[in-house]
């Protein structure tokens, strides 16, 4: 078992970095694009501060449409876009495009739900104190929802660590790729086992970190 680790150690190490790169890019895009999208979904939704029923419906359908694609199909459909953006359709950077597109609506819905869980009365109190919408978002909604937002981020990270392994099926690189190419196609069972162990450790670490951070920001 450890012979395999010695033999394939370098490959495994490279795969870990590739996975971290894919997930890192994905999380970055999820936060930068999915976060504001979730905020807009919340603000324009029913009873929201800037309720826009039609706009919200259309946006909601778009988000759902994106979420209904089987992930592997989404990767294939996006190949032209990926080629345009990254110049190639294989490797971790290319896979990060598909992963990011999948992560945006995923994280957006979690953000929307986290904001919805902020008690409406707290927003009422801010309005009656004379706060503007921008101040309410910045000083009330986001900080009050922070523990839930951190948990949403953790859930997204763990889901997309797993998705990044699926992307291995189309040559993304990373741990999933290694598991398929060596563990599955070449019957190197030990490589497969090591890949699973590494994935397990990554997921555990992410969960620990996420739970710790959520507790740290929670004053309730």
């Amino acid at each position: 078992m450890f012979d395999a680790l010695v033999q394939y150690g370098d490959l495994l190490q490279k795969a870990i970095w590739e996975t971290l790169l894919m997930v890192g890019i994905t999380m970055g895009v999820a936060i930068i694009v999915g976060g504001p999208l979730g905020l807009v979904l919340y603000l324009t939704g029913r009873g929201g501060l800037m309720e826009r029923r039609w706009f919200n419906e259309v946006l909601g359908y778009a988000v759902n449409a994106l979420r209904s694609f089987p992930f592997i199909i989404l990767l294939v459909i996006l190949i032209p876009v990926t080629r345009f953006l990254v110049g190639t359709s294989i490797g971790p950077r290319a896979a990060a495009v598909g992963l990011s597109v999948a992560a945006i609506p995923f994280f957006a819905r979690l953000v929307e739900q986290s904001l919805r869980d902020v008690p409406r009365g707290v927003v009422d109190a801010a309005i009656s104190a004379g706060a503007s919408y921008a101040q309410i978002v910045r000083l009330v909604l986001l900080p009050e929802a922070m523990p839930a937002l951190v948990s949403s981020l953790t859930i997204t990270a763990i889901s997309f660590i797993a998705y990044s392994a699926v992307a291995g099926a189309i040559g993304a690189g990373g741990i999933g790729d290694l598991a398929i190419r060596y563990g599955y196609y070449r019957f190197e069972t030990e490589v497969m086992i090591w890949c699973v162990i590494v994935m397990f450790v990554l997921v555990q670490l992410t969960q620990w970190l996420g739970s710790w951070a959520a507790r740290a920001v929670d004053k309730r």
Binding site: V122, A125, G130, M146
Partner: peptide, 20 residues
Amino acid sequence: RRQRRKIGMIFQLFNLLSHE
């Protein structure tokens, strides 16, 4: 918003910011 500062309000469930 400026006028609202002349009108204070309190609530049944206090509605305080939990993170402050």
